[in-house]
């Protein structure tokens, strides 16, 4: 009887946990069932072979840096925000094995993306770093080239974690440089060169014209102005907000998830 009560209580607890978790992010439990899974493709965005290769790659990176690098996709978020969903997924037991990590979530229903970071992932993947990463990933998401997008994410995560291991994580003013963009830089150089040269020849052309009609007689003003009257009458004021500069410092901004864990992260649309 006692044993029956125990099973009954455990079943009830598990059911309660399942209901609670489903209200936050419906597919969390599916991922939590296998700790070796680093790719949860509920939206079926990539082929099985691609998924297996990606999972292997993320598992290798995660093991190398003792962290979690995860991809999660779904076709609906069931009334939670992308950030809440990404946070809840990362908080699940399946990914608590290692100290922190990063999860990249894609929701195809509303074309959402979100990063969630936790623990050491908060330090490794700063706000500026995440902005840099999504800048590289988003074009592929928009093209629906999901496998390419996730592999870029894996490459960047590897690079970011390697950099974080040096003690100087990628951040504002210290972001990875891409390949030298010769064509883009050549266009910039040509436009800059042409504009500078145009300004110079315009000045040179102006030097050939020295005849100009005089419009003032200031040269012949003797003794300046003798003020006879000076009055300044206040009429009214208007107010406008101060426009603040957005060029702040780097680092990661954090928030607390529904489970009480401190997360970093960001989200948006593609």
């Amino acid at each position: 009887m006692k044993k029956m009560m125990k099973i009954y209580k455990l079943t009830l607890a598990l059911l309660l946990l399942a209901v609670l978790t489903l209200t936050v992010c419906p597919m969390q439990l599916r991922a939590a069932s296998d700790t070796e899974i680093y790719v949860v493709d509920n939206a079926n965005l990539i082929a099985d072979g691609e998924e297996a290769a990606l999972n292997s790659r993320l598992a290798e990176i995660s093991a190398k840096y003792d962290t979690n690098v995860i991809v999660y996709t779904d076709s609906s978020l069931y009334n939670v925000t992308p950030q809440e969903c990404a946070d809840a997924m990362l908080d699940s037991d399946a990914f608590k094995k290692r100290g922190g990590g990063i999860l990249f979530m894609v929701n195809t229903e509303d074309n959402d993306w979100a990063f969630s970071t936790v623990g050491t992932g908060i330090t490794a993947f700063t706000d500026a770093g995440q902005e840099y990463m999504i800048g590289k990933i988003k074009p592929k998401l928009s093209d629906k080239a999901y496998d390419k997008a996730f592999n870029i994410y894996a490459d960047l995560a590897d690079d970011f974690l390697k950099q974080a291991a040096t003690g100087k994580p990628y951040d504002k003013g210290n972001l990875p440089k891409g390949p030298f963009q010769a064509v883009k830089d050549a266009i910039i150089a040509i436009v800059a060169g042409f504009l500078a040269s145009l300004a110079r020849v315009t000045k040179l052309k102006g030097e050939t014209k020295t005849v100009k009609k005089a419009t003032k007689a200031t040269t012949y003003l003797v003794g300046g102005v003798t003020l006879a009257g000076a009055q300044e009458v206040y009429r009214n004021s208007e107010f406008r907000p101060v426009v603040r500069s957005t060029g702040g410092g780097g680092g990661s901004s954090t928030h607390v998830s529904s489970s009480g864990t401190v997360h970093g992260g960001s989200s948006g649309k593609f």
Binding site: Y220, T226, G229, A230, Y234, R235, S237, E238, V242
Partner: peptide, 20 residues
Amino acid sequence: GQIEVGHFDVFRSGNMSFRN
């Protein structure tokens, strides 16, 4: 934290001498 833009009526009068 706000920019106050004050509007004024400013009046000036004076004498000047120009020569040659």
